[in-house]
Design a binder for these strands. Structure first.
Length: 597
RNA sequence: GCCCCCAUAGUUCAAGGGAUAGAAUAGCAGUUUCCUAAACUGUAGAUCCAGGUUCGAGUCCUGGUGGGGGCACCA
């Protein structure tokens, strides 16, 4: 808040006046006053004791006296130990509300306002199997972070780099060729990504059988894995693909298109989108020229077999291969190329990669290699390294059938939302269309909030046996709060009462009302903090606090029955503001909120 | 073997070096002639262990224990 910078300034001059010494800006720490104490903002005075040469209470009293005399917005102060609690005047808070009254998009900056452009890469799936819960976290995070960056005024490009080539795709293709009997999504009624995924699993099963046979014949595991006919065939298929073999390329196109159609459905239900989609089949050769250039300049090294490496041992890391002996690229080479391509194509101030923390080392190396190659923009690459989603029995493993399928999970959430609504009788008398819409909003809202409220960096736990809650600190709680407010506003409107655009300066706010107004005032800084930290969790926590405050206010105060018109106007006004903030903040999490539920 | 990350109520999550470590859920006890009880109120319950730095440590440092991830001419 603007008032905070004013306070900091006054503290500085105050300390100068009182003790004749300069206070370091960093020493001036304001925090929100805790609920159990009287006040709005609190200054921690411990850092000034060496300057004041007095005890904490005396020092706090000195500064408090100075501030309340010199800042008209400060009504009173109190001191608890080394903490100076400042209380603002009633009219300060009313004034604040009147200042934001006309703002239709309070707290949100316009995209482009900051003058910065950011690229956010997220999702980036493989085309050999359907999306699972891990991808869901990635997608929701990527989407939400992109929205947060927009809300902070940046121009944002959302991009997806689809991994549509490589040995894993060939495995699905080969299995389909051998055992598919010409099955298609149409003939089976299966989603394309599911169908292809089934053949990926089929390959693995048959491959394992071959390995087991070889081991029974006395081969070592490594050797068996390397010599199994299926893997040899898959490699041959990859070779043919790279050589442009028509039949293989045709099959590859067909099956990939099945997968894309399936992904599109999942993306659409999750509500995520992209400004641009890259395909690895088109980018995997990028980077080779850059690497060869680096070799020529002596930044990279070449081994006897002709392979090219980056030597990072001086930086405490290993050597990293960048080109194979046969001159082909590896993953890292491609990332070097795509990064270069993007920074050349767009004027990017920042490039964020939303990728799991299992790839921390990869990104560390990527940045380092790019810097060694002399690209200063490498410093503007950020890895949003998010934690894994774990199940009670540990990591999800597709081979062991413990993956939580994205489509199944979403469908389950929507179904539960519908059942819960019906049990509570919430949707009685609603049209089928409304019931479907609201169930979708609530089910997805529960899922999205559940995932996004956790700090992205942390590993999170999901227990499929316990369905995601709809009570307490949940998405539906926020939606319910919104719907309740909308209901009041409708009732008011029916009674001929509209939300006012200015509040009477003379009404007195009680404690609960002040708490609510303070939380409203925190919205812009919550958006900034969430953007700076790439953390939707910051927003999630903020909305929850806001909704909780509102529900308490709602419980204790009447609106329609309030006889004092000014007070009624005020309560209707903050209700409407809270609803607007819930709507705009949940949107940053990719959630929708219903008008009623 | 080497490197990185994590450890908070029974459980799932919060806490920019600052006050008495917050919520939710599960448990217990309540609130509906009153704008939606998917709500509200009360109650009980936690910083892995041992040292250290600091006026002050869940947060920083060292060591240990436990868990996860990475160390491929896979992507």
């Amino acid at each position: 808040m603007e008032i905070l910078s004013l306070l900091k300034e006054k503290v500085q001059t105050g300390i100068n006046d009182l003790y004749g010494a300069e206070a370091d800006e960093k020493q001036i720490q304001f925090q929100q006053t805790r609920k159990e104490f009287e006040g709005d903002f609190t200054l921690v005075v411990f850092p000034f004791l060496s300057i004041s040469k007095k005890n904490p209470v005396q020092t706090a009293n000195d500064i408090g006296t100075y501030i309340s005399a010199n800042v008209s917005e400060v009504e009173s102060f109190n001191v608890v130990k080394g903490f100076l609690n400042l209380k603002f005047t009633n009219s300060f808070w009313i004034g604040f509300l009147n200042r934001i009254a006309a703002k239709t998009n309070y707290g949100i900056k316009n995209e482009g306002e900051s003058g910065k452009t950011v690229m956010v890469e997220y999702s980036s799936p493989n085309t050999n199997k359907p999306l699972h819960l891990g991808h869901v976290r990635n997608n929701l995070l990527g989407y939400s972070v992109a929205e947060l960056l927009k809300a902070n005024g940046h121009k944002v490009f959302k991009v997806n780099l689809i991994n549509d080539r490589g040995i894993h795709i060939c495995k699905s293709m080969l299995a389909w060729q051998k055992w598919g009997n010409g099955e298609t999504p149409e003939s089976t009624g299966k989603k394309g990504d599911k169908l292809v995924g089934d053949y990926y699993v089929k390959f693995d099963q048959e491959y394992k059988k071959e390995i087991a046979e070889f081991i029974a014949q006395g081969l070592k595991i490594e050797e068996a894995k390397d010599k199994a006919p299926l893997i040899l065939e898959a490699r041959e298929m990859l070779r043919k693909w790279e050589a442009g073999d028509r039949e293989v390329v045709e099959l590859w196109k067909t099956m990939n298109n099945w997968v894309y159609a399936g992904f599109d459905v999942t993306y659409a239900t999750m509500g995520v989108d992209f400004d641009k989609i890259y395909h690895e089949s088109e980018t995997y050769k990028l980077g080779k020229a850059i690497v060869l250039d680096g070799l020529e300049k002596g930044i990279l090294i070449q081994k006897e077999d002709g392979s090219v490496w980056a030597d990072l041992t001086e930086d405490g890391l290993d050597q990293k291969i960048l080109l194979r002996a046969d001159g082909t690229s590896v993953y890292m080479t491609q990332d070097i190329g795509t990064a270069h391509q993007r920074f050349s194509e767009f004027k990017l101030d920042n490039h964020l990669y939303v990728v799991g923390n299992e790839q921390n080392y990869h990104f560390q190396v990527l940045k380092l290699v790019l810097k060694k190659l002399g690209y200063s923009w490498a410093d503007h690459m950020q890895h949003l390294s998010y934690g894994m989603v774990e199940l009670p029995e540990g990591k999800m493993k597709s081979r062991e059938g413990t993956v939580v399928d994205a489509d199944d999970l979403i469908a389950e959430m929507i179904k539960t939302a519908k059942e819960t609504s019906q049990e509570l009788g919430k949707l009685d008398g609603y049209s089928d269309e409304e019931i479907v819409n609201i169930s979708k909003m609530v089910g997805l809202g529960a899922l999205k909030y559940f995932i996004l409220k956790v700090d992205p960096k942390k590993t999170m736990m999901f227990n499929p046996k316990e369905s995601i809650d709809f009570n307490g600190n949940t998405g539906p709680f926020l939606q319910y709060t919104h719907a309740r407010i909308k209901s009041i506003i409708r009732k008011a409107s029916d009674a001929g009462i509209e939300v006012v655009s200015e509040i009477n300066q003379n009404i007195l706010l009680d404690k609960k009302e002040q708490d609510l107004v303070k939380q409203i005032a925190n919205y812009p800084s919550a958006i900034e903090e969430a953007g700076n930290n790439y953390s939707p969790a910051v927003i999630a926590n903020y909305i929850y606090e806001l909704a909780k405050e509102y529900n308490q206010f709602y419980h204790d105060h009447h609106i329609m029955n309030e006889v004092n018109k000014d007070v009624q106007n005020f309560r209707l006004f903050i209700s409407s503001k809270v609803a607007a903030i819930i709507k705009s903040s949940t949107k940053l999490l990719g959630m929708e909120v219903p008008e009623r539920m």
